[in-house]
Design a protein around this nucleic acid. Structure first.
Length: 719
DNA sequence: AAGATGATGACTCCAATG
DNA sequence: CATTGGAGTCATCATCTT
């Protein structure tokens, strides 16, 4: 029944190694530590494929580092999701373009196609007049003055604080290396090996160079067993990748349409996600056979990480068969097989097993835990001394980056996010320490954390301060002082009517009976209701939500935006004061202003935060799928008399290296890359599709990483 | 067509309890 | 240490109404 500890830790460490190896395949990731379990040939192949191995002939800069799992899988399953409904998912949703079914087609896409969806806003001083409509107190003082179009600070912040160029790429690469060289380095080969290979073979034959590099890689690890087998696998998979874009296309489409024909059947829990995982695993370099066996054994609901675990474990157990003895493996397989019939993912047994695994681990293998209290590296009210953190070298900017998502994600999600984002420890913060509403979020960033300061004026800290008119009607038995998380839906009028009737029934008494109190308070907490009259509760108005989240009043109002859309956009947004506190350290680093790449911009929480901090926005490239949200931000941009340039793009998936390089060439690179990718597949409120990081929308996280890593690469290449 | 409404649990953490 | 119950969560869908 129990899996042996040996196999468990083996499997887990392999999974971790795999993920680390994946992460490593950017020019900023340090090499695997010598002590780490080696898994090189597989990793090389895996990552090479994920990197878009085959188009060696393509311009290096156009290469995406890591296609998200859904990129190909999404359109291969013609669900009902086209752009129209996709846009409704929320401010950070992103529809899948059928044209982007395959990486290859992506690469060959005319960059102008993306440009066509883009429009330029407000060049220079052509901004709209007055900011009278904007309603925060310090608006006037904060308006940026004396804007000088200096680009001197665009690449290197003046302070040496956290800036120590990313070692590997800048040390020997310099600017003299060819694009080919850079491409191989990006793939994860050491500069030494690449130099050696190119010297031996010359630049004319990339395929031969690749062969050599793979050979070196194998030779490097030859003292250990198993490598002979693996080298064979490498070859095979290189071949696979050669016809990867042509041969597979048809079959994938056929398969998916077949699936679709019985997808309505209730026995099939989630065929498309199964297929997705199959594709993802084959992308990772496993054979289709391995992948489908894993899915069959682990069940249709196993995560990709679990499936990878399984395959690794199976491979290792196969190889270690002679050593371990024959009775161990069947146990392992049996255990995994048990999960096949589970109706829901992350079953208890699995969770317990995982928990058990983690207990066996130590040191940095600990899973990420949420802090209690959730104050991150410090909040304004708290005067504890901040321990200076040490960032992994690969994480150090430029550029700075800042990533956000819900703190209460399913287990393992933050471990994955952290691993991809250069092993930076997430900072979990509840906005209730900044304002009158809770908002538990995780932030992964490489910003300095000393000398932060809060936005002024400080926002109201309690419900009564934020909504003074409610104080009069607030009963003593409602002890809330902070609101719960503001979400995308509000309580209905019918609900508040029911509550009113329940309360009126006990109007003569001094207090309603405990049962009624409990009912009312439960509903209040669930729907964030506030007291607006005798026995009268009401959901928050959109402008109250704006205020609580730190946006100017009427930020989301007007211009054809419906009330429902306002709630939705606001519910998906940053809490400005919280984010601004973290970003405040940029003010002295970039006195002349910053160039900003804002992914999943939504209604512009990042831009508003920086603006309120008094940090001039020089060049802002904002990517946002929802037209409604783009309109909101464009309107804000004009109303606040911005002096910089705003470039709006629609789809993060279409932002490739070419386009990025083109944008960066025009103003010298980004100082900050900020974004919170879609949370809807992670959020607890989602009963329907809480699929984790591999979910349809939430998997766009990998695009955040892809783009961030591209920018890092482009910037380290030097312009 | 857009808005309003109600129905739809699971997962995770944590404090209290035994 | 294991168990239990409470609390909270950037949501989605079908259906009805306006």
């Amino acid at each position: 029944m129990r899996i042996t500890t040996k196999l468990l830790s083996l499997s887990l460490s392999l999974s971790k190694t795999l993920s680390r190896a994946l992460s490593r395949f950017s020019c900023h990731h340090p090499s695997l530590t010598p002590s780490a379990p080696r898994y090189p040939p597989r990793s090389v192949t895996t990552c090479s494929r994920i990197l878009g191995f085959l188009p060696l002939s393509r311009p290096p800069s156009s290469g995406a580092i890591l296609p998200p799992p859904a990129r190909r899988a999404g359109p291969a399953f013609p669900t009902e999701n086209p752009a129209s409904s996709g846009a409704g998912v929320g401010s950070r949703s992103s529809s899948r373009s059928p044209a982007s079914i395959f990486w290859g087609s992506h690469l060959s896409k005319d960059p102008r196609e993306n440009q066509a969806q883009e429009y330029k806003v407000m060049d220079g001083n052509a901004a709209g007049e007055g900011d009278d409509n904007v309603d925060w107190n310090t608006e006037d003082e904060l308006e940026v003055e004396n804007y000088a179009a200096s680009s001197s600070s665009s690449l290197t912040p003046p302070s040496g604080d956290a800036v120590s160029g990313s070692g590997e790429a800048s040390s020997s690469a310099g600017t003299s290396h060819s694009k080919l060289f850079c491409e191989f380095v990006v793939m994860g080969f050491s500069e030494k090996l690449v130099t050696k290979a190119i010297d031996e073979i010359g630049e004319g034959n990339p395929d031969a160079i690749l062969e050599s590099l793979l050979t070196y890689k194998v030779l490097e690890n030859s003292p250990q067993e198993q490598d002979i087998d693996e080298s064979a696998v490498v070859k095979e998979e290189v071949m696979d990748s050669d016809h990867f874009s042509s041969d597979c296309e048809g079959s994938f489409l056929e398969d998916s349409s077949d699936d679709d024909s019985y997808s309505e059947s209730e026995e099939v829990i989630n065929p498309s996600s199964e297929e997705k995982k199959l594709l993802f695993l084959t992308d990772m370099g496993y054979t289709a056979e391995e992948a489908s066996i894993a899915i069959e054994r682990c069940g249709p609901d196993a995560s990709v990480a679990e499936l990878a675990d399984f395959i690794c474990a199976a491979q290792m157990s196969k190889e270690a068969d002679a050593l371990l003895g024959p009775e161990e493996k069947p146990r392992l397989l049996n255990n995994f097989t048990k999960h096949k019939k589970r109706k829901h993912s992350n079953c208890d047994a699995w969770s317990k097993k995982r928990r058990g695994e983690k207990k066996l681990l130590h040191g940095d293998e600990e899973p990420i835990r949420l802090p209690n209290p959730m104050v991150g590296f410090g909040v304004p009210a708290e005067s504890r001394t901040i321990v200076p953190r040490t960032l992994p070298e690969a994480a150090i900017g430029p550029p700075y980056f800042y990533y956000e998502n819900v703190a209460l994600a399913p287990k393992g999600v933050w471990d994955t996010i952290s691993r991809f984002l250069y092993d930076v420890e997430p900072e979990f913060v509840d906005s209730k320490y900044f304002c009158a509403t809770a908002r538990k979020r995780g932030y992964v960033h490489n910003l300095p954390i000393n000398d932060r300061f809060p936005l002024l004026p400080l926002p109201p800290g309690t419900i009564h301060e934020a909504l003074p008119l409610t104080k009069k009607w607030w009963p003593s038995w409602d002890t809330r002082t902070k609101l719960n998380c503001l979400q995308t839906c509000i309580g209905s009028a019918k609900l508040t009517e029911r509550i009113r009737k329940a309360l009126e029934h006990h109007d003569g008494e001094s207090e309603p009976p405990p049962r009624i109190q409990k009912y009312v308070l439960d509903e209040c907490r669930k729907w964030n209701l506030v007291w607006v009259g005798r026995n009268k509760l009401a959901p928050l108005e959109p402008d109250e939500v704006e205020m609580l989240l730190g946006f100017p009043k009427n930020h989301t109002r007007g211009g054809g935006i419906s009330r429902t859309d306002r709630y939705k956009s606001l519910g998906n947004s940053f809490q400005v004061d919280t984010v601004a506190y973290h970003l405040s350290v940029l003010k002295e680093l970039f006195p002349a202003g910053i160039n900003l790449l804002s992914l999943f911009s939504g209604i512009g929480g990042a831009e508003v935060a920086l603006h309120r901090l008094g940090i001039p926005l020089k060049n802002v490239v904002s990517v946002e799928i929802s037209e409604v949200n783009r309109n909101i931000m464009r309107s804000w941009w004009e109303q606040t008399n911005q002096k910089g340039n705003l470039t709006h793009l629609t789809d993060v998936q279409q932002l490739n290296g070419d386009r990025l390089e083109q944008l960066m060439n025009s103003f010298g690179g980004f100082d900050l890359i900020i974004g919170g990718s879609p949370c809807n597949n992670l959020a607890g409120s989602n009963r329907h599709s809480r699929d984790g990081l591999e979910g349809k929308e939430s998997s766009l996280f990998y695009d955040y990483f892809r783009i961030l890593d591209l920018v890092k690469c482009i910037m380290s290449k030097g312009h």
